[in-house]
Amino acid sequence: MSQSALHPAADQATRLLGLWDLMLWVCAGMYVLVIAFLAWAIWRRRRAAYLIEPEVMVSDPGLERALGGWAVLIVVGLIVLTTASFLTDRALATPGERPLKIKVTGQQWWWRVEYQDGPVERWVETANEIRLPLGRPAEIELASDDVIHSFWIPNLAGKTDLIPGRTNRMAITPRRAGRFRGQCAEFCGFQHAHMALDVTVEPEAAFEAWRARQLAPAAAPADPQRAYGQQVFQAKACAMCHAIAGTQAGSRNGPDLTHVASRRTLAAGALPYSKGALAGWIANPQALKPGTNMPAVRLSADEQAALVAYLDGLK
């Protein structure tokens, strides 16, 4: 999994990298010139010290020409950088054709991801993971539920803040398939570091297959242990914050768990998904992600095993 702004996989990140490269070379060229002139001046003064006191030249045509040229160089360099920055910004703000609408809401300390594309019965909600079809621009709406967060997938685009009471927008047009890591880039509390996003760019057919699976409500548990687990989920504090489509649990305080076992991470990238990690997370979330809003709910061993079996079956 990659997290690097120097290996762009989307149009926006490629543009930003181009601007970054230009700034690097322009600034590096100016730096080399300054250092070269400085070195030459020092060397010339040392050589001159052996000779007689040089005559002070009130008007040195050579020096005047050099200073004039230097001023021109600075003005041209700044104009090039400003123009390039303006053009890049404009390109980033231009939405593409047939955009895929996604709403991302930052919460302490996870991401709510809603695909609001097409008719409302095709909308899909997930958490801490984003899947994008290759080549199709995504229009991402950014909001926050509590404090300021910042949405950053370095391989795909630059940072954009999520601000309470305000909606920001950004576009991403992925050009290379792969898995990328996103990260909250604005300090937002205890678990800011454990607020990651699992981003997958895949061909459109694979994306549509994933969306069709996410659209399905959770399958009713077949075996008695999982059925008991569902009862535990409803009867205990779980249902106070989490939703599972197809059941009575519908709270939107915490992440939607309809297909929790199909995700690759738990708790916003804090743990790779496995049945054992899920059990540990439920048993003592405060030990794995101190300060998280998920409380440790007291469960008997039977209840806990049934609950984990139930959730692990939500593929």
């Binding site: 009867a235 205990k236 504090a237 249902a239 106070m240 409380p295 440790a296 709910v297 007291r298």
Partner: peptide, 8 residues
């Protein structure tokens, strides 16, 4: 009783 932890 069961819907919120004692701490909550």
């Amino acid at each position: 009783r069961d819907k919120a932890t004692e701490e909550q």
